[in-house]
Design a protein around this nucleic acid. Structure first.
Lengths: 126, 126
DNA sequence: GACAATTGATTACAATTGTAGTCTATTCCG
DNA sequence: CGGAATAGACTACAATTGTAATCAATTGTC
């Protein structure tokens, strides 16, 4: 898969709604967004732009367009994640992880899960 | 400290250069940026914008402006980090950490360091 | 002291983003 | 069938961002 194009902050909100319940019409997408976040026309604009960018596709069904994503959330996270890493943490993974461990809320079970993952990771590669 | 204002991608590059060697003049900032990244005037524009945003300050020394930051890199990382977390990972820390563990390069010693941190974190809070 | 070089200040300008409104075609209701 | 509601298409418009160029003041240099 080619790199996902740049997706703006607001476009991300629309994408998340779509990923959760695609395919959807523009009206359904609005309904899935946090109450009163945007007007219908605004959502429409974002859908059009996302399609232009090649991130989603639409099919006419009756008199409505039904949208679906062309990239998974995982793919977009990969792209956005590596951008963030290099921009904010100069590409240094460990300091970034450290930052989040220090600055964000982690439950006991989150911590356990992560430790297990690090164990696996530690033994299976150099 | 109040929240740092929004800092764009290119502005971040300038900030990183400044954090590494402040205070600096515009000419010095350019010299510190990756070779041939921008023209001098472009760097000047970013410095002016950053000052307008209240992220850096300048003092006239001779006929040059000398710039210094008003926020630490840590502070800006906190702001940018929580934005990223909520935008891309819907505010869920553990899935984000997992993502980076799976998708980015971590050395043995990185992994050890992180495990130790998680140990501390696990015992010192609920 | 006149001219060149250096710096900051001001201006420029297109692309992207946020946030819709208007215009038009279709379709449902009575 | 005629008007109202609805969905998409097209248009709008200011703020931010990337990328500088021009204008003007200052300062060395000969």
């Amino acid at each position: 898969m080619p790199d996902a194009p740049r997706i703006s902050d607001s476009e991300w909100e629309v994408m998340k709604a779509l990923w959760d319940h695609e395919p959807m019409t523009a009206v359904e997408v609005l309904a899935r967004l946090p109450y009163d976040q945007w007007k219908q026309k605004t959502v429409n604009t974002f859908l059009v732009r996302l399609e232009t960018k090649g991130v989603i596709a639409s099919k006419r069904v009756g008199r409505a367009n039904v949208y679906r994503t062309l990239y998974t959330e995982k793919e977009c996270r990969r792209f956005e994640g590596s951008q963030f890493l290099s921009k904010v943490f100069r590409g240094q993974v460990a300091p970034m992880m450290l930052h989040f461990i220090e600055n964000e809320e982690l439950s006991e079970s989150d911590i356990d899960k992560l430790k297990k993952l690090l164990d696996d990771r530690g033994s299976s590669n150099g």
